[in-house]
C-alpha cells in the first residue's frame, strides 16, 4: 500500500463518508451484532457511568498522513475547534468533577488556540493528556511546544508503532521514526519519561497490519530494552491499541483483502473481561465542532449520543450524560478483542 500525502476526503474517496463506512461495517456478514455479544457480560446493555475523562478532538489537521488513521487527518483538513467551543468545554470542566482532559486530533498542537486552551484547563486543576505525534514538535512554528507542555505538567501520549524504523515508517511515513527518536530525546532532556520528574510520557503501539496487538506487558519490556539500548531513550508506559475497522484502516483492510478475516478475528477474540472495562463507560468525546460522542471512533463515524442525551458540549447535563446507553456498532468489537483496547491501552 502506497504512502499517503493527503486525506481520503481530499481525494473525494467513498470511504471518507461516514455513512459509506457504516454500510460496510454494519453489514453483519454473519457476525452477531455487538449488542448481542455484549449480553454475555451480564450487565445488560452497554451504559456509561460517571465521566472521568473529557476527550476533546481539537481538529483534524495534522502534519502526518498515517495509513491507519481513524480520523482521516492530514495537512489538508480544515476542521479546527474554535475558541468559543473550547470555552464551552472549559465551562463544563469548571462546573463538573471531571478530573482528566485528553486532547487529541489531528495534531492537537496545530489548533491555533492550543496553548491558551491547555493553560485554561490547567488553571482548573485538571490533568491534561496530549496525544502528540512527536514530529510536530520539531516542525517550524512549534519549537517551544515541548517546553510549554513540560512547564504545564502535561502528560504526553505518542504513537511509535514499533521500536524499529521499518514498521514505524511503513505506517506513519518515511523518516517518521528518526524524527520521533530525535524528539523523544528532547522530551527526555526536559524530564519526560523519568519517574522522578512526574512528567509522564507514554508510547502507543498499533499493529502495522491486519493482526491483533501482542501482550502489552511483554511488548513494553521489549520497547524499554530496545529503545534504551539503541537510542538511550526512556518512557513510562506502553499502551497497545487495536486498530479499529474504520476510515483509512478500513480502506487498507478492504484493499488488502483482509477485511473479512480481520472482523472474524475481532469477533472470535471477544473477551467479556475486556468488555467490562471499555473506555466509553467513563470517557466522553467532544468533536471539533462541539458535538458529543461516546468515543473518538463514534465521532469519526458521526454516531452522536443516544436520542435523549445532549448533542453539544454547550448543552452538557451530567444527569442526562451519566447512565446513558452507548451507541454501538460492529466496530465496537475492536475494543473488546483479546486483552481489550482503549486510549489507555489494554483493558484487562
Amino acid at each position: 500500500m502506497q504512502a499517503r500525502h493527503k486525506s481520503m476526503k481530499a481525494f473525494g474517496e467513498n470511504l471518507a463518508d461516514a455513512n459509506e463506512q457504516l454500510k460496510i461495517i454494519n453489514n453483519s456478514n454473519g457476525f452477531p451484532h455487538f449488542d448481542e455479544k455484549f449480553e454475555i457480560v451480564g450487565e445488560g446493555p452497554l451504559r456509561a457511568g460517571k465521566v472521568e475523562i473529557l476527550q476533546v478532538n481539537v481538529g483534524k489537521m495534522c502534519n502526518q498522513v498515517c495509513k491507519h488513521c481513524h480520523v482521516d487527518a492530514g495537512p489538508d483538513r480544515k476542521e479546527i475547534m474554535t475558541k468559543e467551543t473550547m470555552q464551552y468545554c472549559l465551562d463544563v470542566l469548571a462546573n463538573n468533577d471531571i478530573p482528566t482532559v485528553d486532547l487529541t486530533g489531528g495534531a492537537p498542537e496545530m489548533n491555533p488556540n492550543f496553548k491558551w486552551f491547555v493553560d485554561k484547563i490547567k488553571k482548573l486543576n485538571k490533568h491534561v493528556i496530549v496525544r502528540s505525534n512527536l514530529t510536530i514538535l520539531e516542525t517550524n512554528g512549534y519549537a517551544d511546544y515541548a517546553e510549554f507542555m513540560a512547564n504545564h505538567k502535561v502528560e504526553i501520549v505518542s504513537s511509535l508503532p514499533y521500536y524499529k524504523k521499518s514498521f514505524t515508517d511503513r505506517q506513519r511515513g518515511d523518516g517518521v521514526f528518526d524524527k520521533s527518536i530525535a524528539v523523544i530525546k528532547r522530551l527526555n532532556e526536559l524530564g519526560y519519561g523519568k519517574e522522578e520528574t512526574g512528567l509522564i510520557f507514554n508510547l502507543v503501539y498499533n499493529p502495522v497490519g491486519a493482526f491483533l496487538p501482542p501482550s502489552q506487558e511483554e511488548l513494553e519490556r521489549d520497547y524499554k530494552r530496545e529503545l534504551r539500548d539503541n537510542f538511550g531513550i526512556v518512557f513510562n508506559n506502553l499502551y497497545t491499541i487495536t486498530n479499529m475497522p474504520i476510515s483509512r484502516y478500513l480502506d487498507y483492510l478492504l484493499q488488502s483483502g483482509n477485511y473479512e478475516s480481520y472482523m472474524q478475528k475481532l469477533v472470535d477474540a471477544f473477551n467479556p473481561a475486556a468488555a467490562i472495562g471499555v473506555m466509553c463507560k467513563f470517557t466522553l468525546s467532544v468533536g471539533w465542532n462541539g458535538r458529543l460522542f461516546d468515543c473518538d471512533f463514534n465521532q469519526m463515524l458521526e454516531l452522536g449520543l443516544i436520542d435523549d442525551a445532549p448533542k453539544h458540549i454547550k448543552d452538557y447535563n451530567a444527569s442526562l450524560i451519566e447512565g446513558r446507553r452507548i451507541v454501538t456498532g460492529q466496530h465496537c468489537y475492536g475494543c473488546t478483542a483479546g486483552s481489550g483496547s482503549s486510549c489507555g491501552g489494554a483493558t484487562t
Binding site: K164, P214, E218
Partner: peptide, 12 residues
C-alpha cells in the same frame, strides 16, 4: 506468521 506478528515480531 500471524501468531509471530501478534506476539510482536517483525519481518526481520
Amino acid at each position: 506468521t500471524q501468531a509471530s506478528l501478534e506476539k510482536g515480531a517483525d519481518l526481520e
